[in-house]
Each structure stands twice: as C-alpha cells, then as structure tokens.
C-alpha cells in the first residue's frame, strides 16, 4: 500500500464539538503567529522551500521498511522538519502536510483537523525543538548531539503526540483514559522507535552529504525560547497527566464528571453558554489549581530557558 494511514490522525466524529473547536482555535492562533514569524524573519526564499519540503515529507512517508508480520514503519516528519527548518517554518510545513492529508486523502477529519494540527504540528514541533536543542546544548555541539538529539526528539514527538490524542479522546468521552492512554502510549513507544531510526538515518546521511543544512534551522533563534518552553510544558503536562488519568479508574472522565466538564464537552456549544461562564472553569477552586499548576510550570520553564541561554552565551565566548 502506497499511502498508509496512521493511527495518529483523528477522523471526524471521535472528538466532541467543544474539544474540536477549542483545539481549532489553539492551532489557528499558533499557525497565525508562525506565519507572521516566518514572513518577518525568513526571506521570500523560504516559501518555495517550505512547500517543496512539505511535499518531500509526504513523499518520504512512502519510503517504508518492513518490520514484522506485514506491518511497516514510516515517517511522520515533525522532528526532521524542526531540525532542518527551525520551529516556525516546521509548524507551517506540518500544518500543510496534515491539512492536505485531511482534505485530499481523508486521513483525519476536517472538524478534527484543528486537533490533528495541534497534535502533530504544535506539540510535535515544540517537543522536537525542546528535546533537540537541549541535547545539543548538553553535547556542546559535539557530533553525537545531532544524532542522539534527533533520535530522542523524533521518539518523544511521536509519544507525546500520541498521549495528547489519547487524552483528547478521553476528554471527548469517546475512549476511556485508562484504556486509551496505555494503548496509544504503548503502541507509539514502538512506532516512535521507527521514527527515531529513520530520522537518525536521514541526519546521518545529511551530515555526511551536506553538513551545512543541519545548521540552517538555527537561522532565526529569536522567540525560539518560547517554543522551547512550550515543548517542555507539553512534555511535562502530558507526562504527568497521562499516568494520572489512566491510573485513576476512569481518571479523567471522573474528574470531568465531577466538575461538570463532561456534560459541557458533550453538549453543543450554545447549551453551555447560559449555564457556565467559561467551560471547565465553573468551579473556582479548580480554576485556581489549574492556573497555579500552569504558572509554576511556566516559571520553571522560563527559569530553565534563561539559565540555558546564559550558558550558551558564556560557552560562545
């Protein structure tokens, strides 16, 4: 089969309308910002390059290798795009790839497209960027930083995206968290190995053939700290939320039901508006806890980011 659908693309009907629309809004804001960044920082040269690379990711998904029992592994590409183009351009490339997959090949739904862009684009790119740059800094631009960074970034981007899919399904009341999270997480820990190895192979080839390309992604470092922090937050949040959600019997759903979110999530939008001021924040204590948790993580991330930037500067001297 030339075009193999991946279990990561959510079709329409599996997400509740509220979850779909919230994720559409989040993706639209991220992509709009990325578009602005790209047209500001990068030259007009970048437009054909991004278009052709998006096509290359598509075509690269056809290059597969047999694993066992008729299954085969192939590329998602978020990590490779992030390493080669930098996070902003990579987000646009992934948006294009996921968008065409949905519109033309029905791989993923149209209403669910926002969620798919969020999972494979926003989360995939942010996590890849966070992991790759962190490992490269640790390696102090030694050669192994590129390869280990690429492998781990690819693996992490797949696993974290898969956990996000599972949590969204759970939040929509489609799939219970204690089944969806281990299933999606487990399968994608294996699939991620394939992605990691392909990314590693591609980087090894490019390192041998065109070393300069591996540094072109660092062209626009401004504002990438935000992506780095975003990647950290996604990785942490999903790493913490997923076990919590699956360890608690029906964890996420239980919480959601307690807080009236499940009803909100499953009812059409205009049913909620008279009853709640803002969905999910109907309980003030919950809102405070969520905000506190997010704030702590953000501060932690920013502190780490600043420390890491300072180190980079001193290392540069």
């Amino acid at each position: 089969m030339l075009y193999a659908p991946q279990p990561m693309h959510i079709p329409d009907g599996f997400l509740s309308t509220l979850v779909s629309i919230v994720l559409w809004v989040l993706s639209a804001v991220s992509v709009a910002y990325a578009l602005r960044r790209v047209s500001q920082d990068l030259g007009e040269r970048q437009v054909p390059l991004m278009g052709v690379l998006a096509a290359a990711i598509f075509a690269g998904q056809m290059l597969n290798f047999t694993v066992a029992g008729g299954t085969s592994g192939h590329l998602m590409g978020a990590a490779l795009a992030t390493i080669l183009l930098g996070p902003w351009a990579a987000l646009i490339v992934m948006t294009t790839v996921v968008g065409i997959q949905a519109v033309i090949f029905q791989d993923g739904g149209l209403l669910a497209l926002g969620a798919n862009i969020f999972n494979m684009g926003v989360i995939g790119v942010a996590v890849s960027h966070f992991v790759y740059t962190s490992i490269q800094k640790l390696a102090r631009s030694a050669k192994w930083g590129i390869f280990v960074g690429g492998f781990v970034a690819a693996w992490m981007s797949i696993v974290v995206s898969a956990l996000a899919v599972a949590l969204q399904l759970a939040l929509s009341g489609t799939s219970p968290a204690n089944i969806a999270v281990p299933a999606m997480g487990g399968i994608h820990m294996l699939i991620g190995l394939g992605e990691g190895l392909i990314t590693l192979g591609a980087l090894a080839f490019l390192y041998a053939a065109r070393r300069d390309l591996l540094h072109s992604g660092e062209a626009a470092p401004k504002g990438n700290v935000a992506v780095w922090v975003g990647g950290l937050v996604f990785a942490l949040l999903l790493a913490v939320l997923s076990p919590l959600a699956s360890a608690h019997p029906d964890g996420l759903e239980w919480v959601a039901e307690q807080k009236g979110f499940l009803d909100a999530a499953q009812e059409p939008l205009y049913h909620i508006i008279p009853d709640y001021v803002f969905p999910g924040i109907s309980n003030e204590a919950l809102a405070t806890i969520v905000a506190g948790l997010l704030g702590t993580l953000m501060v932690f991330g920013v502190a780490l980011g600043v420390a890491y930037l300072r180190r980079e500067r001193t290392a540069g001297r």
Partner: peptide, 8 residues
C-alpha cells in the same frame, strides 16, 4: 530503518 532514513 536506518537505511530508509538515509533514503529519506
């Protein structure tokens, strides 16, 4: 897998 990566 690594060879496929090289081709990619």
């Amino acid at each position: 897998a690594r060879l496929t990566g090289g081709m990619v």
